[in-house]
Design a binder for these strands. Structure first.
Lengths: 236, 236
DNA sequence: AGTAAAATTTGAACACGTTCAGAAATAGAC
DNA sequence: GTCTATTTCTGAACGTGTTCAAATTTTACT
């Protein structure tokens, strides 16, 4: 039948990967130009010089193309944020970089992102924000914020929730970005800076020893809600 | 041509409103049974004993039917929350009531709600969460939380943001509800109770005179982001 | 009752996303 | 070079949401 799974996973034709790219590039160009809904699979196939069916050979469907874009955004965010972290010394700089780089990547794709957000609420959908299907993508996204606060001296319990909270903030800012129609998304940029300043202050207050009981309460809420995995300090 | 606008607004046929109801009820029954996507407009029309086109005479499209359900949820929430407010004395009781009644209304429609959430991210969509098209619905929804805290003695600035913050919390809980697969949505119920307790505590801290500068900063962020309308205390 | 206008209903038609049976092109073995 | 299996590609076909011109029913008025 076939040699083995590993060998079979490698594309036999070098042209294959190129064709896939061609379809993806054509699709994204059309999405940006006319929007997701106004771009038909027939348009995409024609633009890539192929028949309709060929597009479905490379992508399971229209949403899968959007999914490929999403994966690109995450990977690019990782790369750019890390590069920025090399230069940025203070926590403020690192948090700003983590958020601004994300907007940098998506700044030309507001319409596309709006369409992507459609699938967020449905846990069973492969492109949901919190569902099991996008678990890996989410992990990578949270990891960026883990790295952003990596050098900080923080109590254990804060270390445990901080990345999740920052990721949530980041999702909120993304949502704001979707609705932002100010030139060059200046309002989103300002919101990021203001939000980061607020986070810095909140950190100062939240890490006071006095606040330990409050932190424990928040942790317990999140754990009961299964929003946070179990951990050592669970039975306190 | 016709008498006048007022007379014309009244349905000529009493049967008309009944037919509309019939379509809506059939649609919702099918949505609950098979889900939104698996239910076709042809199914709905057939179930209501009509031809396909008739369904489009009463509803602009499939999404409009979902929109009608959404409007029902809001109205029902208003009614139930107010009834509960009559009985509930403490702020804790009132906030709990405001949130629990909402879940009560939607508890059989998780799948439908997931489909509704699809449109939330797109500002141009009539069913978006924050867009101009759903402004009125949103106002009604925020109003419930205004009423929940109506009797409280609160500083002006807190009064200004509190309903918006509570509404945001409520949206977050809704999102959690969408993903909750615990029996009888017990996790969502627990989260509501815990979140309300947290809000009560947060209120206690946030209303301290000491916290006034912090409150002003938050207010300024929200105003700069246009998430809050301008007001008297804007130039402080 | 008769008539015209309006409201309601019909079902064919359109463009879309997706599927699929098979055709064409290519790779690998001999 | 020939043959076979695999990859790649084609385009017709299906079911969908939506539109629309036309048919039918009801209302309003004389």
């Amino acid at each position: 039948m076939f040699k083995d799974a590993a060998a079979r996973a490698i594309p036999q034709r070098q042209a294959s990967e190129e064709t896939r790219r061609q379809i993806l590039d054509t699709a994204l160009a059309l999405f940006r130009e006319r929007g997701l809904d106004a771009t038909t699979m027939r348009d995409i196939a024609a633009g890539a010089g192929l028949a309709l069916g060929a597009a479905y050979y490379y992508f399971k469907g229209k949403e899968a193309i959007v999914g490929a874009y999403y994966a690109y955004v995450q990977e690019e965010h990782r790369v750019r944020a890390r590069a920025a972290f090399e230069q940025a010394g203070t926590l403020r700089d690192r948090l700003r970089a983590a958020l601004h780089t994300k907007i940098d990547i998506m700044k030309n794709d507001q319409k596309l992102l709006r369409a992507l957000f459609r699938f967020g609420g449905d846990p069973d959908h492969p492109l949901s924000w919190f569902g099991p299907a996008s678990r890996e993508q989410r992990r990578l996204s949270v990891e960026v914020f883990e790295e952003a606060i990596a050098g900080e001296k923080l109590p254990d319990d804060v270390l445990e929730v901080a990345p999740l909270l920052l990721w949530t903030l980041h999702m909120g800012i993304l949502l704001y970005f979707l609705y932002d129609n100010s030139p060059a998304y200046r309002r989103t940029r300002k919101l990021i800076d203001a939000a980061v300043d607020f986070v810095i202050d909140a950190k100062r207050v939240a890490t006071l020893p006095l606040m330990r009981p409050v932190r424990r309460r928040v942790l317990n809420i999140l754990r009961d809600a299964k929003l946070l995995g179990e951990s050592e300090s669970a039975r306190a």
